[in-house]
Design a protein around this nucleic acid. Structure first.
Length: 607
RNA sequence: GGACCUGUGGUGCAGUCUGGAGUGCACGCCGGCCUGUCAAGCCGGAGGUCGCGGGUUCAAAUCCCGUCAGGUCCGCCA
């Protein structure tokens, strides 16, 4: 049926008789006997010279037979990969009729996302989306090859599973054979892969679907895909080396370059960037003003910690913008946001202009400028409060300010910046092909205590504590570091992993700190603890989000752009109308009765 | 659970602040012209429940209340 791809034809094919198949992309008519028809398949577009062809409307499915020939002098299209050639003496066979699409199949047109999702099959026809799908396939291919090369065995694990202690809300699936009982879809294959270590698989991997019933975001869907791996008889450096190899292989497959991956401790990430997922490209690192302001009279700055960021050259920022920043800081949980302009003082040295300036001693003002390395014309933003809060708020503001600056820069931009179709930029600003990977290591083992003072797992309850901190496990649990690590890129958390506890005595100590009783533990994951009685090797692993990695590599801001059929923020699919109420017969068979009226609010599927 | 933004012919927008005839732009669609275009061009035409419901008003796309949908974010999320 087909003897060539549209996008492959080149001058070297001159004289070839070919048959190409695809969709009519465009038609340019010149009277009764000449029309240029651009035919599109997944590889690209080729111009076909057709006698007549007035009824060849866009998106018609056709096969065109013709002879490849060089274009006449002066009609070469340099912007087209196939622009040196065209198909002449064409005969056209219509293989399928097509109504006008709801939006143009073109990267130039960006339809509303709701419309794109409703007609996703049309949306995916666009070159950009085709490229994203293929980029994703290339990432998967590179990951599989890398894992295979490292001696990892691909093993599939069940989707119909049972609740696990990872913490996310889970999707339940009713059992027909055992009415009233439910399976749970895995939030990750965490427990299953640990069991595979007990089984002696030693090196497991899987490109795994994970399901979490949490609210959706630009970087979060209910169902997402991870490269999940686990290995035995390894330390965390081994695991990170495996992941590094896989990620670098994937990045190299796309960009041709192997990235360098730096390492930061969790503590350092928090201090310098205010987050455990730093975008290290952006500069504007946080400054600790605690020492400078230890004795300050300024009430607003009296707190456990005072941190600041310096926004270079932003000293002329207006009140409306500063108010907006203050509102945002409060939304993020800060009591307030102190702003200070660095100005030239009376004697030519730098000084601070701020509503707070009158509460600051000259020494404090100098100290602030020295600590932040402020120059006249800069804006300083400071947050006072508990250390983690102050850092977190400023860390978020830092990212948003950098992002806004980039948008403003693009709008002002160089003349060439707007050309070439849709604009692509990575999350959090920065430049397109600039991927800054970093390992964040030495996470705390436990998070802040709940109301009763019981710590909760930062990662999950099977995470191995840092050996140096073991003596603190009972006496100062919040100070205990873990052997957990995250991989971060451009401010996105790509994935996380840890060395697991494989000894029952240590596991019991951790359970005690977490307030998990033996009965609880047996009930919730007794099968894992059972397994560990029969010879569990030391093991550890990792999982990272392929959706996010692919989006980063594609320069997309949302993972929805690299998922064939994603869901909207409210979890519905505008194409199918899912989720929908189940018909009564199915409900009966499953032993289910809808509570509270039970008529969902299914969206209307496409007609 | 919450905050903000958006909703106007098939598509993308302007119009909303400051109420006065469904007004405008670009693309697409339909018809006609056109033999080297490539986002072809030229001429003509059709196409609207201004998301939905209620209120204020002589009069509502515009103001008010509610609601639905989409997006960004907070909470939530290994």
């Amino acid at each position: 049926m087909r003897s060539a791809w549209c996008g492959d034809l080149r001058a070297a094919d001159d004289g070839r008789a070919v048959r190409v198949c695809g969709w009519v992309a465009r038609r340019r008519e010149h009277g009764e006997h000449l029309a240029f028809v651009d035919l599109r398949d997944r590889t690209g577009v080729v111009q076909c010279v057709v006698d007549g062809g007035h009824d060849l409307r866009p998106e018609l499915v056709v096969a065109i037979e013709g002879k490849v020939r060089l274009r006449p002098e002066g009609t070469v299209n340099a912007e087209l990969a196939t622009g040196e050639v065209e198909l002449g003496d064409c005969s056209v066979e219509v293989l399928g009729e097509a109504e006008p699409p709801p939006f143009a199949v073109s990267d130039r047109v960006d339809a509303d996302e709701a419309v794109r999702l409703r007609y996703r099959y049309v949306d995916l026809r666009r070159p950009r989306m085709q490229a994203n799908l293929r980029l994703r396939a290339a990432v998967n291919r590179a990951l599989r090859a890398a894992m295979d090369g490292l001696g990892f065995v691909e093993v599939e694990t069940p989707l119909l599973w049972t609740p696990t202690p990872e913490g996310a809300r889970e999707f339940a699936v009713p059992s027909r054979l055992q009415r009233g009982s439910f399976y749970v879809l895995p939030q990750s294959p965490q427990i299953a892969k640990q069991l595979l270590m007990v089984s002696g698989v030693d090196r497991y991997y899987q490109i795994a679907r994970c399901m979490r019933d949490e609210d959706l975001r630009a970087d979060r869907q209910f169902e997402f895909t991870q490269l999940d791996l686990e290995a035995s008889f390894v330390g965390q450096e081994d695991v990170r080396a495996f992941v590094t190899e896989a990620v670098c292989a994937a990045v190299e497959a796309i960009s041709g370059r192997r990235p360098e991956i730096g390492t930061l401790s969790w503590d350092e990430a928090l201090d310098r960037y205010g987050t455990d997922k730093p975008d290290v490209r952006l500069g504007m690192e946080l400054t600790d003003l605690g020492a400078v302001l230890a004795q300050t009279e300024a009430r607003a700055l009296q707190a456990e910690a005072v941190r600041a960021v310096r926004v270079e050259g932003a000293g002329s920022t207006g009140r409306a913008r500063l108010d907006a920043l203050q509102d945002r800081a409060k939304e993020l949980g800060a009591a307030g946001l102190a702003w200070m302009r660095v100005v030239s003082g009376d004697e030519g040295d730098a000084d601070i202009d701020s509503p707070l300036a009158k509460f600051l001693t000259e020494q404090e003002r100098r100290g602030i400028i020295t600590a932040t390395e402020g120059q006249p014309g800069d804006l300083l933003l400071a947050v006072a409060g508990p250390r983690r809060l102050a850092c977190r708020v400023l860390g978020q503001l830092r990212v948003e300010i950098a992002h806004d600056a980039r948008i403003a820069g693009a709008a002002a931009g160089s003349p060439g910046a707007g050309g070439g179709g849709h604009r692509r930029r990575g999350p959090g600003g920065g430049t397109d092909d600039d991927l800054a990977f970093v390992w964040v290591v030495d996470f705390p083992l436990f998070e802040d205590a709940d109301d009763e003072g019981t710590p909760i797992s930062a990662h999950h309850p099977f995470t191995m504590p840092h050996p140096e901190d073991l003596p603190l496990l009972e006496s100062d649990p919040l100070a205990v570091r873990s052997q957990a690590y995250d991989l971060v890129c451009n401010g996105w958390e790509l994935g996380s992993g840890s060395i697991r506890i494989h000894r029952r005595d240590l596991q019991d100590r951790v359970f005690r700190v977490l307030g998990i009783s033996e009965t609880d533990a047996t009930e919730r994951f007794g099968f894992l603890l059972d397994a560990f009685r029969f010879g569990a090797p030391p093991h550890g692993g990792f999982a990272f989000g392929i959706d996010r990695l692919t989006a980063l590599l594609a320069g997309e801001e949302s993972i929805r752009e690299v998922i064939a059929f994603p869901k909207t923020q409210s979890g519905s699919d505008p194409m199918t109308g899912a989720p929908k109420p189940l018909d009564p017969a199915s409900m009966r068979e499953l032993g289910l009765r809808a509570a509270g009226g039970g008529t969902g609010r299914a969206t209307q599927p496409a007609t």
